[in-house]
Design a binder for these strands. Structure first.
Lengths: 191, 191
DNA sequence: TCTGAATCTTTCCACTGGAAAGACTAGGGC
DNA sequence: GCCCTAGTCTTTCCAGTGGAAAGATTCAGA
């Protein structure tokens, strides 16, 4: 039996994302992950501590990934103010496992410093999009500015409903990103 | 030891709602519920089949409760079009356990007929609010009409973020329902 | 009172996450 | 070359979980 997997941490996170995307977080089995990566079911403890630690790491990875995606958005077009929202939704749909964990504080160790800084950066990237939308640098954190909160709620709600299977996926001929665009246009623009 | 609890079904649902509100769905233990209701851990199977059946019943109960709350809304005031959204959010905050289960199809048996009819009635009640908002009877189900979907996404997103602890609760002096009202006003009204 | 249906218990099983202690391995200092 | 420490992984154990199967108890109606 091999000692030293080589990159167990990365392998476990990948396996976890795949498993969660397939079966949901609550059916995630540490022992199952261990089997998938051909390692004993306690090997992961050295890297993550416990189950919660693993999910925390996954959430942090998710925050970082989404931040990167939002920063890469081209916001210069005529409807550029929509694109951050669209990117948020597209990223969520493309990374359902991460997204599921990112917004479930009950699953995660919120005190984790790596998690907190990653979350902070995501909040910053979100505010870029809100600033486009309101036409001026927005004041305060997204959670206290009503317009920012409306934009975030709308985007987040759409992504959540879509991931939970409450939205039509293509049956209307309209792709989900297109639908998202149409929905986001219903936010009132201040001027 | 008593045979026949009397109203095990109701008692189990209540205990489940309390436990979920306190610790989240995934930490819900059937055996724990059984202890709380002073019954063997398999007693519930006669009423619900399995764990999933219990959660399905809870979701159906939630759909019905929310439907009732939405129907009781006074929508005649100057901003009556907002009140359905506010009621949605208030109900979600008051019944976190039900709300958690209602929109997680992975936890539930979607084929359950009782669940489906309860969900249908909720959709109807939701459309009442959307009709107020758009000023005319809305066409189609909420999930295909972009404006309806925007209103639902915004409302649902707000409730979700609030329940997950991502929103300030009173630290700004503003109560969550008031904040919800301010946020909902940012939906563009067509006319 | 008898009987069938409903309700609950007992017992068992495979599985889960975590604790504890020990085995292996790599790499830096001598 | 060797040793020794830190890092990584395994083995073994334990309490707890949800579900299956079979049997006991209670209830309602003929």
């Amino acid at each position: 039996m091999h000692y030293h997997h080589g990159d167990l941490r990365r392998a476990m996170l990948e396996a976890a994302a795949t498993a969660i995307a397939a079966d949901g977080v609550d059916r995630l089995s540490i022992r199952g992950l261990a089997r998938a990566t051909e390692v004993s079911h306690t090997a992961f403890r050295h890297h993550f501590g416990d189950r919660r630690g693993l999910l925390t790491a996954l959430a942090a990875q998710g925050y970082a990934g989404m931040t990167q995606a939002l920063r890469a958005v081209d916001r210069t077009g005529p409807e550029g103010f929509l694109e951050t929202g669209v990117a948020y939704i597209e990223w969520a749909l493309a990374h359902p496992a991460h997204f599921q964990v990112m917004f479930r504080p009950d699953l995660v160790d919120e005190a984790d410093p790596a998690l907190q800084t990653a979350l902070g950066e995501l909040a910053g990237a979100l505010m870029l999009g809100v600033a486009d939308f309101s036409g001026r640098p927005s004041e305060g954190a997204p959670r206290t500015n009503p317009l920012a909160l409306a934009a975030w709620s709308l985007t987040h709600g759409f992504a959540t409903l879509a991931l939970a299977g409450n939205l039509p996926s293509g049956e209307t001929g309209q792709s989900l990103p297109d639908l998202a665009r149409a929905v986001l246009r219903n936010l009132a623009q201040p001027h």
